[in-house]
């Protein structure tokens, strides 16, 4: 049971540099730079000097950049393919429906960025100016940044290890010229790993308003949600609520409803209760949502009268209400 012992004695995950050796004591630890594990680590000298017990030099730059962003929201899921990016896009579109609201979407899913496709920006490239990288705009008040805009070809695999991913995330946070934003929505890859730790490390100072967690109804997905909520608690992020996606399918022919991903253990609602987070609602499985995403158009605009649109809008309202009282 070695792994358990390691996990239990692990330092605060946020203080382990991305290129640290496996038994890194954590840069803020008294042992930083002096433990056995530190021998040979690229950071050893810096750690031993005590500088690292102070903050990361990128932090003030991130804080500066984020000072003009009112609300920062993470969209998380434990499991893959549950509809995070699709939800992120709908949330962005819904916020941006108000002309006086400025919204940014940041896609930190580095290996599988789907935000450009979903927002219809698949062929766009990023431009840089003296004030930093400019986001790509879907419309005047909806800007987007994704690693997808920086790749020479969408076919290429992004085979990056943690440290490289973290470098890019810190650049996204300090170098993207968002301007003044009402909302910054961050779409993340599934799981709880480098990307998540980096985002939290860099944004903790500037304040993350909360996370929306997406799941599908079956137990295999819910067990990953429990882990994700546990992660949020460990690093001190407020969970705004849980959204259950793909909750039942309405046959376009007979209008009969069936459960594809059967909630065999009570689904999202029950899990939200058990883990004491708020349940924001369920979105039915509608094949037109996937089609809209493939074509890069807003489902909310295309099918304003569908039950899924109603569900999305109710959920988004609840998120807004929660953010307003903060």
């Amino acid at each position: 049971m070695l792994a358990v012992q390691h996990a239990a004695s692990a330092p605060d995950p946020l203080s382990v540099p991305s290129n640290a050796p496996e038994h890194c004591p954590g840069t803020e630890s008294e042992l930083a730079g002096k433990a056995d594990a530190c021998a040979g680590c690229a950071n050893q000298e810096i750690c031993a000097s005590g500088v690292t017990r102070g903050p990361d030099p990128a932090l003030p730059l991130v804080r500066e950049r984020m000072s003009t962003v009112k609300r920062k929201i993470l969209v998380l899921s434990g499991k893959g393919g549950v509809g995070k990016s699709t939800f992120t896009a709908q949330l962005g579109w819904a916020f941006a429906a108000d002309e006086d609201t400025q919204t940014g979407i940041m896609d930190v899913d580095i290996c599988g960025p789907s935000i450009p496709t979903i927002l219809g920006l698949a062929t766009e490239q990023v431009h840089s100016s003296s004030s930093g990288w400019s986001p790509v705009y879907v419309q005047d008040n909806l800007g987007v940044m994704s690693v997808g805009f920086m790749l020479p070809s969408s076919k290429d695999a992004v085979m990056w290890r943690g440290p490289k991913k973290n470098g890019l995330i810190s650049q996204f946070l300090k170098d993207v010229d968002w301007g003044a934003l009402d909302y910054l929505i961050v779409d993340t890859p599934p799981g709880t790993s480098d990307e998540h730790l980096s985002i939290v490390t860099y944004l903790r100072d500037s304040g993350i308003d909360g996370a929306v967690v997406i799941t599908t109804p079956q137990e295999v997905a819910l067990q990953d949600v429990r882990r994700e909520i546990d992660f949020c608690r460990k690093v001190g992020i407020k969970v705004l609520g849980l959204v259950e996606n793909m909750s039942g399918f309405v046959c376009p022919k007979c209008k009969g409803e069936s459960q594809i991903f059967k909630p065999s253990t009570g689904g999202g609602r029950r899990l939200a209760q058990d883990m004491n987070v708020s349940f924001l609602g369920s979105v039915p499985l509608d094949p037109r949502i996937g089609k809209s995403a493939d074509y890069g158009v807003s489902f909310l605009d295309e099918y304003p009268d569908s039950p899924a649109t109603t569900a999305y809008l109710e959920i988004i309202d609840k998120i807004k209400q929660q953010l307003d009282v903060l």
Binding site: A7, P13, V16, S18, A20, P21, D194, Q223, D230, F231
Partner: peptide, 15 residues
């Protein structure tokens, strides 16, 4: 290897 079913494993690459 996890004790509780909701335990998250938050590990960076090297680990």
């Amino acid at each position: 290897l996890l004790k509780k079913k909701e335990d998250s494993v938050v590990w960076r690459g090297p680990k």
